[in-house]
Amino acid sequence: MSVSAHPRLRAPDGDDDLARLKVVPTRHPWRWVGIVVVLVLVAMFVNGLITNPGWDWPTFFRFFTAESILRAVGVTLQLTLYGTVIGFGLGIVLALMRLSRSRFLTAVSWTYIWAFRSIPLIVQLLFWFNISYLYKELTFGIPFGPAFFGFDTKDLISPMGAAVLGLALHQAAYAAEIVRSGIIAVDHGQLEAAAALGIPKTRQFRRIVLPQAMRSILPNAANEVIGLFKGTSVVSVVAIGELFYQVQVIYGRNARVVALLMVATVWYIALTTLLSVAQHYVEKRYSKGATRDQGGWKWSR
């Protein structure tokens, strides 16, 4: 024994070679209990789906691909498409206004976002649907002066037009904030470098800022698009023949409520799945150069 103050900390001598020993991984018995419980619950649910006549599968299959339902799915997709394109188009403009150096543009953008986030979508839709009560005619002319020509508001804004307008204007307020969050997340040095190289302003935005902002915009934007897609069901209050309105009409006639709700549900699930897959590929496109891994993109990122 030496005079060391902590003799026990000395390394063991010689022959105790740890490399020979077998490694026993940590055991997780409760994990197995959890798996069993979940499997049993899933089995019970599936069993119920098959054996409970209340689900009424024959009716489900009769209507799932019925022409009226397919047409309604088309309307739902149309509303989603217009709402997304117009909503995000306007959203980008609003985000840029909000980030601009002009106090005036910032204030306009802020007010828009404040107003349209404050009004529930359903209320807004009803307003647009009833706009012709408020303004019978839209005219173009000198403000407070004579009019040159005009349109009947009812002809100009159809029910479908009112629905698209409502969805898009509502969506734009949320899109603006998502786009803005993406833009401010881009490293300031990127803008300085672009400015120092003399790259024109619009090109700086399109080529340098936006592609990098897209990485943080996309997951949120996908949420919004999926939210909008399902949110189109709100439009049923103004009697547009979209998916949810159509199933309501059908079960109003034949009283097969559950089967028809399942028709809508399965369509919503299927199309949301497609949107999620699309999201995956779009995100992959914008992940160029984003990781140190030369192989590029990974599921986990």
Binding site: D187, G189, Q190, E192, A193, Q212, Y286
Partner: peptide, 13 residues
């Protein structure tokens, strides 16, 4: 202009 932190555009080759 050459920056301390390079500021290359990471999404471009």
């Amino acid at each position: 202009f050459v920056f301390q932190n390079f500021n290359l555009f990471p999404h471009l080759t």
